[in-house]
Simulated assay, not measured.
Amino acid sequence: MSRLILKGYKLGFNQLSRTSVARFCEIFGLDNEYKQELENIVVAKVRSPKNPLFSEQNRNKWGNFFRDKAKDLLKWGFAKNSSREILILYDRCTSIVRIYAMKEVLSKLSTEIRFIKGV
């Protein structure tokens, strides 16, 4: 039997993978200075939800990190377990199921990094 990842959604997609800042930094090789900075960024967002996650002053530094690690981030977010072979998307509003080969999904995802109003 193929390993799969199943994502349900309504109207849009939410997070792909959840993790702590500490674990994220460990996975992507970020040192304690980056870890502390990222923790501060996340705490500031929680305190002021209307503000963007990354301020203008943080966007260049973190944008470079995300651009450099884009493919690794996508692979981790969609298929951190390398044995996952299928992505199944279930639209709860329409009850439509879409099934994709994970290799195909990963090969077609854009690695363009943009900061948007939300996160």
Rank of each mutant, 00 (worst) to 15 (best):
residue 95 S to C: 07
residue 84 R to L: 04
residue 113 I to V: 15
residue 24 F to R: 02
residue 47 R to S: 12
residue 66 F to R: 02
residue 27 I to T: 14
residue 52 P to E: 11
residue 42 V to I: 15
residue 61 K to P: 03
residue 69 K to P: 01
residue 45 K to Q: 08
residue 117 K to R: 14
residue 61 K to I: 10
residue 11 L to P: 00
residue 78 F to A: 01
residue 25 C to T: 05
residue 45 K to A: 02
residue 7 K to W: 02
residue 84 R to V: 13
residue 91 D to A: 11
residue 89 L to F: 10
residue 65 F to W: 09
residue 6 L to Y: 06
residue 43 V to H: 12
residue 55 S to A: 12
residue 54 F to Q: 05
residue 92 R to T: 06
residue 83 S to T: 15
residue 40 N to Q: 15
residue 34 Y to S: 10
residue 92 R to Q: 13
residue 99 I to T: 13
residue 18 R to Q: 14
residue 38 L to M: 14
residue 69 K to L: 01
residue 117 K to N: 08
residue 92 R to H: 11
residue 86 I to Q: 10
residue 56 E to S: 08
residue 81 N to D: 15
residue 37 E to V: 03
residue 42 V to P: 04
residue 34 Y to C: 07
residue 16 L to H: 10
residue 49 P to V: 11
residue 77 G to W: 07
residue 22 A to L: 11
residue 95 S to N: 15
residue 12 G to R: 12
residue 53 L to Y: 05
residue 41 I to R: 04
residue 78 F to Y: 14
residue 119 V to M: 04
residue 61 K to M: 11
residue 45 K to P: 00
residue 83 S to Y: 11
residue 36 Q to V: 07
residue 85 E to A: 07
residue 106 L to N: 02
residue 27 I to Y: 04
residue 4 L to E: 06
residue 100 Y to P: 00
residue 33 E to C: 03
residue 40 N to I: 07
residue 51 N to G: 07
residue 40 N to M: 09
residue 86 I to R: 08
residue 102 M to T: 02
residue 47 R to M: 12
residue 34 Y to A: 14
residue 101 A to D: 13
residue 10 K to N: 08
residue 60 N to P: 00
residue 98 R to T: 09
residue 7 K to Q: 15
residue 19 T to E: 06
residue 93 C to H: 10
residue 9 Y to Q: 05
residue 26 E to N: 10
residue 11 L to Q: 14
residue 54 F to E: 05
residue 83 S to Q: 15
residue 84 R to N: 09
residue 36 Q to Y: 04
residue 38 L to S: 03
residue 58 N to W: 02
residue 20 S to H: 13
residue 113 I to K: 03
residue 88 I to W: 03
residue 44 A to Y: 02
residue 3 R to D: 14
residue 76 W to Q: 06
residue 84 R to D: 10
residue 30 L to V: 01
residue 6 L to R: 03
residue 108 K to I: 03
residue 114 R to K: 13
residue 107 S to R: 08
residue 93 C to D: 14
residue 70 A to Q: 02
residue 96 I to M: 07
residue 76 W to S: 01
